[in-house]
Amino acid sequence: MEKQNRLAVLLGPPGLYLLILFLLPLGIMAVFSFRAGTIGDARFIYTLDNYREFLTKTSFHRLLLISARIALTIASLSVILAYPLAYYLTFRAGSRRVILLTMLIVPTWTSYLLRIFAWKLILGSTGLLNTFLLWIGAIEQANPILLYSRNAVVITLLYVWVPFVALPIFAALERIDPSLLEAAADLGSRPWETFLRITLPLSLPGVMAGFFFALIPTLGEYVTPLLVGGGQGAMYGNLIQDQFVRALNWPMGSVMSLAMLVLAIPLLFLFTKAGGSDLVEF
């Protein structure tokens, strides 16, 4: 009994906080999505019209699908680019490990907004890339090859995610018992066989954690497209932001947010199932 009181005192405040400021707002948004409007009598009318409108607007679906594809691309490419980094750190870096790990993490400590903004200085028409290409004579005249496009968004988001995806993979690789790899070698396994049959399967929890850790937030990303994407590179998150900031159609924005949440819930479930939160370091 006494123990239960202690638990209640400890668990109560964080539990209530998350309930009121995390779960409750999602619930209120769900109710809000049925409203006919936000001013006058429309506030008190509940309707399915928002949902009907959402279901008929193919432009919304298309952008949601495109955003899902971008998120999948970024999560997959991040894993592919990050895996060798984590592998090298774990098995080959030797005494360089700490310094190399630090080199990977330190850039992520700087402002997210400004790191993204800096890519404008690289990809723009008077940016570093163009200047460099002009200088080596690869192109004749400067042009904004990449800026304000979906490619710019993908490149910039890859830049953001690769170090964060490398960390859980690194953590998973580090947990592998080296005697397993030695045993495999003693039994005549070739390095590639050992990798495919022991190292890779054992590192999968880290791969999954990193994959979902990049995938789910990217699905709703709106800041990067605002900065480097331009009109061409807009994502679904920008559409939602527009409903709240410019179009001021909050009920429609709620429907759109819920649609994304429905898409994300199975992924969130997989993330927690993969023990994702254990492996996510920073």
């Binding site: 998350l18 779960l23 707002p25 850790f213 939602i240 909050w250 947010s257 993330f271 994702g276």
Partner: peptide, 21 residues
């Protein structure tokens, strides 16, 4: 699970749901 979800939930959803509330 609930306490880990804010790690990955798209921030736009968190932002607009709090705005509405």
């Amino acid at each position: 699970a609930v306490s880990a979800l804010p790690l990955v939930i798209p921030y736009v959803i968190l932002g607009v749901s709090l705005l509405i509330m």
